[in-house]
């Protein structure tokens, strides 16, 4: 793809907006359609587009596989850890109402945190799977 100038320039222009849209979907999922799953996939697609256009080596420099694989697990841990926070505060597992004095504010906070965990795991898992498939020789 090194010689496709149009593809390179257009994707360079698009990638920041794809990432911004992913963040919007991530943090606006409480109010409109969207959430961690969709945001994670959109964020991953920004990295995958970069990898397709600028080569896998450059993409691995931007998103080092050692870091990305740890993020796959980190998202699940953020989610489960939020669940245990409820236990430590004396409520049920995954009862976010206990995270704040006001149960509704606690619910909102808990949902934000677990959606972030979902997004982290989904994005990292998709990037990892793409790296593995694309990096494999025939």
């Amino acid at each position: 793809m090194r010689h496709h100038r149009v593809l390179r320039i257009i994707s360079k222009l698009l990638i920041p907006f794809i990432m911004l849209f992913a963040l919007y979907v991530q943090f606006h999922g409480d109010f409109g359609p969207g959430g961690g799953f969709q945001a994670g996939v959109i964020m991953a697609s920004a990295f995958i587009l970069y990898g397709l256009i600028f080569g896998l080596e450059n993409a691995r420099k931007v998103a080092p596989p050692a870091v990305v694989t740890k993020l796959v697990a980190a998202g699940v841990l953020i989610y489960a850890g939020t669940g245990y926070m409820g236990l430590f505060k004396g409520a049920n597992f995954l009862d976010y109402g206990a995270l704040s004095k006001d149960p509704v504010a606690g619910q909102h906070l808990g949902i934000m945190i677990i959606e972030f965990g979902v997004g982290t795991t989904v994005a990292a898992a998709m990037i990892t799977i793409f790296f593995l498939f694309a990096g494999r020789d025939r």
Binding site: G29, D30, G32, V104, A105, Q107, I114
Partner: peptide, 18 residues
């Protein structure tokens, strides 16, 4: 109970969080 306008997110993340 949850305070989110998007009921889908409330169900997905809170009621069915497990």
């Amino acid at each position: 109970e949850v305070g989110l306008p998007n009921v889908v997110t409330s169900v997905l993340a809170s009621y069915r969080g497990y």
